[in-house]
């Protein structure tokens, strides 16, 4: 087949790439999390001080908790929107399937920033939503909590990550052999029972993958809170950004990053485990 030399030659560039741009930065981040800052300089003094701060300072714990709450809310909303959409497309859209599928995918090609600014325009004090509500005389003053609130962050992230939740669910539904649905009807089950007993269990791996996407992507997001979050909508990634920037506390920033990384990896691992348990072949 191929010679050893050829094999090493082709595998070297990707290995170098992963080594330099992935493993090395992770190692540096990990090391930084055990270092400290003295008089504006990072000193290579190994200690656990940063981890103590992370778990004892209510400020960080609070933001972390809020971040997870927002990510959970985004996950729930994305699934509540994405699942029915995927179900409709897979089972009832018939000829319109291709078109609707493209319509779900197209927003993914629009820049994240553009979509973020669009929400600013919609939710702002003199934005479209407030203007419309006042036009209908439902409100007389601009509703201020639309923008710069956790609500706005959840709304924007849901908008952005619903296609990510939709795609794996749709793929899972498309893979359900249709004779199984017919068999269920044949055995006396109506639409609701068929959904609960056959379609939902068989789409669980997709549902899980969709939920993982939405949760993990929201967990690390920092643009949405920056654009529409305001002070009450700050998420953990913004804290990390500040620590690495204005606050110049790389070690603490690295500690939080390590913590989020561990959280994310365990989530992915758990999701993988459950997906295996729920897939049947």
């Amino acid at each position: 087949m191929y010679s050893r030399a050829y094999k090493s030659l082709v595998s070297l560039p990707p290995l170098l790439w992963v080594g330099i741009f992935l493993l090395l930065p992770y190692a540096l981040m990990f090391a930084h999390s055990f270092w400290a800052v003295r008089e504006g300089l990072v000193v290579h003094q190994w200690n656990l001080h940063n981890y103590k701060i992370l778990f004892s300072n209510p400020l960080y714990a609070g933001v972390l908790f809020r971040t997870m709450r927002i990510a959970a809310a985004v996950t729930l909303c994305s699934l509540l929107l994405g699942y029915p959409l995927a179900y409709y497309l897979s089972f009832h859209a018939h000829a319109r399937k291709e078109l609707l599928y493209q319509l779900v995918i197209v927003p993914l090609w629009v820049s994240y920033l553009v979509r973020g600014y669009a929400w600013k325009t919609i939710l702002g004090s003199d934005g479209i939503l407030n203007g419309f509500l006042q036009y209908l005389h439902l409100t007389h003053e601009p509703v201020v909590f639309f923008l710069y609130s956790p609500f706005a962050v959840v709304l924007m992230l849901t908008h952005i990550y619903t296609p990510f939740a939709f795609l794996p669910i749709y793929a899972a539904l498309e893979h359900i052999p249709r004779p199984l649905v017919e068999a269920s009807h044949d055995l006396g089950a109506g639409s609701t029972q068929t959904f609960l007993r056959v379609i939902l269990p068989l789409s669980m791996p997709g549902l899980l993958a969709g939920a993982t996407f939405a949760f993990v992507l929201s967990l690390g997001d920092f643009l949405a809170p920056l654009l529409v979050g305001g002070p009450s909508g700050i998420m953990i990634a913004n804290v990390v950004q500040t620590l690495f920037g204005a606050a110049f506390d790389w070690p603490l920033g690295a500690t939080i990053s390590v913590f989020i990384l561990i959280l994310t990896v365990s989530l992915l691992f758990l999701s993988e485990l459950l997906e295996k348990r729920w897939s049947f072949k």
Binding site: P177, P179, E182, A183, D186, L187, V198, W278, F280
Partner: peptide, 12 residues
């Protein structure tokens, strides 16, 4: 009731 061509047994 029907016995399907490829049986259509519920895999889960």
């Amino acid at each position: 009731n029907t016995v399907f061509q490829n049986y259509a047994l519920f895999p889960h």
